[in-house]
Design a protein around this nucleic acid. Structure first.
Lengths: 232, 232
DNA sequence: CGAGAATTTGAAATTACTCAACTACAGTGG
DNA sequence: CCACTGTAGTTGAGTAATTTCAAATTCTCG
């Protein structure tokens, strides 16, 4: 465990306010794992055995429906935790997790993370914090899917991606993540055709520039306006 | 705190595996609160200060959008916990909670529940369990909203309500909960008109019997078939 | 009975999906 | 360097699902 890694752990909400000894213990118990682009860390339905922490690259969490459709739950970047559910006995992963680009994670087997939680209430408080945040985000997403039209949902996803992985350019914000029309469709609950048409329209109006697998936001302000809930 | 109440607590997943002493402490710290039909325990946006536990009646959790639309997140019945988010410092309630029928709850102020969590790791493990379950349910709901048509979503909600509050009748299952078309619409992300038409169609085909604010499921099997994901 | 709320129903409008055909792009190997 | 191949993206036409709005109807409670 290198000092850089320790620092990365330390800066993560999950390990906030842990004393050095505790952090040491946490680091001790961690395993490292590296995957190539497109490889899976685990599949939906597998018994949930490990809690993961992204060091490098991105991980895509997606749920597949019975008839093969996909729903893209989220992208997890460096310094973020996923599959907390593995803390619980007998749980199964509700999503599959796939490396996007070469990716590296730390993970802890359930037994380890459970015993750490028992030793350090701070850790379990942090974990609850994260879970609560997650619940809040999902509630928002449910609300959006329930009440908002596709165009607005796409705008909101772009804003969110820009916030999470946005790179400032002289003339706009680049979403620094290879993302296809299909991906956007799976994130917003629509089809790639509708996404394509919508992005095209925005491009024509100068709001964005859309390249193959990439989007640059040229007029964030206009996009925000579409993303907001008010009608006018 | 009566023995019945203690028993109710004891039977709840949240308080599972707590020893008697711990349970005693939990009970000590609880406050009781009773509300009339339609009254609110708290409103969306209020600082989240209390964790609640339903003793009697039902509580409706709903989120209101900027433009006044509602999204009904869930109904909470006796023996269930809500607003766990209040464990966290500085959180705000993401939903409003309204009594459905005369209702009674126990609640714990944040300080109390936080200190109980620190004393009893079992309690915090249980709490995480509940939160994880919640996350899983929300993920399912997101998937449904993203990929399924209204008819199927309505069928699924009816099945769920039947499971949660269903009462066996000689000839079917009564959903024992005053529930309007509007409510169903808010639960499934559609309009009351579409709900009305859909229920009417099912009634015509003998799948259900629909009364004002009530639904009786006559042919659970057929409804399950509509609710399932396979196409055919 | 009467008032208000819940529900039904019809018709029109809209949104988004489906499917098929086409175009653009990136990487590969000759 | 270019043809080739596969993937990503675009576009049009037709269709299906769902919403919107207005109006009529039914139910419940006081």
């Amino acid at each position: 465990m290198t000092p850089q890694l320790l620092a990365l752990l330390k800066s993560n909400p999950l390990f906030q306010n842990l004393n050095d000894h505790a952090l040491e213990q946490v680091a001790q118990a961690a395993h490292r794992l590296r995957k190539q682009d497109g490889e899976f860390f685990f599949f939906q339905g597998d018994p949930a055995a490990r809690v993961h922490f992204v060091i490098q690259g991105k991980v895509k969490l997606a749920q597949t429906t019975g008839d093969g459709q996909q729903v893209l739950m989220e992208y997890i970047g460096p310094g973020r935790v996923f599959s907390i559910i593995a803390m619980l006995p007998k749980a199964r992963y509700p999503v599959s997790s796939q490396a996007v680009g070469e990716s590296e994670v730390l993970y802890w087997p359930r037994e380890a993370i459970v015993s750490l939680n028992e030793q350090y209430p701070t850790l379990s408080a942090n974990m609850m914090q994260l879970m609560a945040t997650q619940i809040g985000e999902f509630q928002n997403r449910i609300r959006e899917l329930s009440t908002q039209r596709v165009e607005r949902r796409i705008a909101r996803v772009l804003m969110r991606l820009a916030r999470q992985t946005g790179q400032r350019l002289p003339d706009g914000v680049l979403i620094d993540l290879a993302i296809s029309r299909q991906d956007l469709a799976e994130m917003t609950g629509t089809t790639l055709f509708t996404v394509s048409r919508t992005l095209k329209r925005w491009e024509t109006n100068g709001l964005i520039e859309s390249r193959r697998e990439h989007v640059i936001i040229r007029q964030p302000h206009s996009l925000v306006k579409i993303a907001e809930e008010s009608e006018d």
